Every structure is written in structure tokens, then in C-alpha cells.
Simulated scan of single mutants.
Amino acid sequence: MPLFPAEMESERLRYERLHPDDFDPLELYEHARAGAPAIDEITEYVTWDPYESPKEAFDWVSTCGEAFDDDEEATYAIRPKDGDRAGELAGLAGLHTRWDRKLAILGIWLRKPFWGRGYSGERAGRLLELAFERLDLEVVAISHDPENERSRRAIERYVDRFGGHKEGVVRNGLVIGGEPRDSVRYSITREEWDERR
């Protein structure tokens, strides 16, 4: 039995593992390729660049599948369960473990039509539950580029809701477009999570 669940749900979202056995990389390429709608806005503050070829999407899905099989991290395709865009790929969410530190790091990117719907916070709640209740981790961390106001607002809302706090600025904590950038880091502990549940 795999350590990470292959599928999960939350109130409005379904999570499916990004794995070559389950996911068509061409669907990812369609939305994450150079020239895709709003791709420059989507990738402005993330650590990856738009795909230049379908092979890059295939390689990424394979990499995610290997990490899933090795019990190191889980990347999920996020899909709304209901509404006018039900079943559509909204974006990707990841939980990256550092087993030696009992730590998980959360990540997410969403396509622009899915911004402003509260999906980031809903996804955080589901992945926090996974980290603390199934994986027995002690700390979950989240970071954003200091200039990314949209992420800051979303992260601060759910970090506050789950009892966590802002740790501070990590100098050169990210690489975006080949350049080191600062990052702002937040964390939530299992004790904080338990108190707010």
C-alpha cells in the first residue's frame, strides 16, 4: 500500500496523484505550456517555467510518479467537484516531505480561472490533515515570493485559521527565472493544528 493516498477529496475539490499510470501529461502541457492562457501571470512567482515541449510535461509527470512511488512526495492534480468547471484541471498541489526533519513543505499553482475561489486554503486544510494525521509529521511550512501579494493574502488567511505563524524572510530562499529571490516562510505545527481542529 502506498504511503500517500492516490486520490483524496475535500469539500469542493478532488485530488488525483500526478503519476504516469493515472494522468495524461498532455493535459498538463495544454495548460502549462508557453503561450497557454495567462501563463505569464501564473508563472510570475513560481519556481518553474512554462513548458516548451510536451516532453517536458511527460518528464515532470514521470518525476512526480517516481517521488510518489518512493514515498518522498505527492503531487496532485486539483479538480473542482461541482459547478461550471467540474472535472477541469484547476492546477497542481504538492506535499514535499523531509522525513529526517519530520517536515512537509506545501506548494500550489492554479490556473487563472480558479483564482479567488478559496481553493488554496481548502487544499492546505486537506494536505495539513494528510501531513499530521496520516504521515505523523510535526511541522508544515509554506513560502511565497515577497512580491506575490495574492499568495501572501491566501497563505496568511489559512495559516491564521490553523494556528500557525509567520517565521520571517529567508534570504535567497527561492530561484525564479534563474535568479535567487527572497521568500517569506510560514509554518504550522501539529500542536497548533490540533488546537484549532
Rank of each mutant, 00 (worst) to 15 (best):
G91F: 02
L130H: 09
E129P: 01
H96Y: 14
T63L: 03
V170W: 10
G163S: 10
Y186W: 14
E122W: 08
A77N: 03
D69I: 02
I188W: 08
G173T: 06
H19N: 08
P2M: 12
A6H: 05
R79Y: 10
L3C: 12
G83T: 01
S151R: 03
E73Q: 12
D22K: 05
L128P: 03
T75H: 04
K55L: 15
Y158Q: 02
R126K: 15
H165A: 13
S120F: 00
E149S: 15
F23Q: 09
P54C: 13
E156G: 03
F68N: 01
D40M: 10
E167I: 09
G116V: 07
E72F: 07
I176S: 04
E192Q: 14
L128R: 01
R85Q: 13
Y76L: 02
F4R: 08
R134S: 14
P50G: 04
L92Y: 00
G121S: 03
E7P: 00
N148K: 12
R153D: 10
E122R: 07
L3Q: 15
A93Y: 06
N172E: 15
S187L: 05
R79K: 15
A38Q: 14
E122N: 05
P113W: 05
G116E: 10
E73H: 04
V140E: 09
R98M: 10
I39Y: 03
A36C: 10
Y45N: 09
L18Q: 02
R123Q: 08
S183N: 11
V175L: 04
K81M: 11
P5V: 06
D59C: 13
E9V: 06
V139A: 06
H144P: 02
E195H: 09
D194P: 01
I78N: 00
V170R: 12
F132E: 10
H31Q: 11
R181L: 06
I42V: 15
R153P: 03
W109Q: 02
W48C: 02
E138D: 15
Y29D: 05
I108R: 02
G125V: 02
E44L: 13
L128T: 00
R171F: 12
E191K: 15
E88A: 14
A57W: 06
P146S: 11
F23M: 13
R152P: 00
G163L: 10
A74M: 12
P20I: 04
R134D: 15
I142M: 14
P50C: 07
A38K: 14
S143L: 05
I42N: 01
S10L: 07
D100G: 13
E11G: 08
A32L: 14
E27S: 01
Y186S: 07
G173W: 11
Y158A: 02
I176Y: 07
R197D: 09
M1D: 13
P50W: 03
A131P: 06
E27N: 04
F4P: 00
E156Q: 13
R171Q: 12
W60S: 04
M1F: 10
T97K: 13
S62Y: 15
I78W: 00
R126H: 02
R153H: 14
I108D: 01
R152G: 00
R12S: 00
A32E: 04
R161T: 08
D100L: 15
E9I: 09
F132Y: 14
S183E: 11
G118E: 03
E195K: 14
G107N: 07
E129L: 04
M8Y: 07
F58A: 14
